[in-house]
Simulated scan of single mutants.
Amino acid sequence: MCVIETSPVVETRRLLLRAPSPQDIPAIARLANDEDISRMTLRMPYPYGANDAEAFVVAVAAQDPAKANTFLIEHEALGPVGVIGLFEDADPAPEAGYWIGRPYWGRGFATEALEGALLWTGRRWRKRALVSGHFADNPASGRVLEKAGFLYTGEVRKQFSKARGEPVETRRMVWLA
């Protein structure tokens, strides 16, 4: 029998992955209100304000933990640095998506958070495969996925970016446990 955690917490060397809470709304809004972040995601609008962050926190609280888990990425000394989510979509395997606030780019937080989420996915969520992707004009995200063990599938999809207001070529990747 698989036990579903309703508010899982994942600890890595420097990070804590946990459910976002109402007190995180200002930090989420501040970090996410960056066009260079939102335009590299499918679902984030730009500009991104406190109302968007509040709606995000409410939506995460309403997720079915058997089908989706979204974590605030919190650094032990710096506080919130980004978000990572795992969710079932139209693909046969669940999808992983993430973003890191600009002040924290280049520090390995995305890779560390993704590796922690993948470990949790296999052990607690009992998933043996995940898919993800990155926009063709965001090779840095592809490097994060590669470091975490994702492989390119060769598929390129046009996927709609809310912040860009248009479809964007997305290079698809897969991770197998």
Rank of each mutant, 00 (worst) to 15 (best):
T170I: 04
Y98R: 01
Q23D: 11
R102I: 06
V81K: 01
I4E: 12
V58F: 12
P103I: 08
P45N: 11
E95D: 15
D24G: 12
A27C: 12
C2M: 09
R124S: 05
E35T: 13
E76T: 12
A113N: 03
L119Q: 05
W120Q: 04
S7D: 06
N33H: 10
S141R: 08
N33I: 08
T12Q: 02
L130Y: 05
R126Q: 10
A113Y: 01
Q159C: 03
Y104C: 13
I73C: 00
T12A: 00
R14Q: 09
M1R: 08
M1L: 09
V174C: 10
F150W: 07
G101I: 10
G133M: 01
F150S: 01
R14C: 11
D137N: 09
F56D: 11
R18I: 04
D91T: 15
P167W: 13
T153S: 13
G165Q: 08
N69R: 02
P47F: 09
N51V: 05
V174E: 13
I25L: 10
T70W: 00
K162G: 01
G142E: 15
F109Q: 09
F150H: 04
Y152T: 04
V156W: 08
T41P: 03
K158S: 06
P103F: 07
T70Q: 03
R14K: 06
L78D: 13
S38W: 14
S132D: 00
P26Y: 10
R171Y: 08
V3A: 04
K158M: 08
A148D: 00
A59G: 11
E146A: 15
P8T: 05
W99Q: 02
S161H: 03
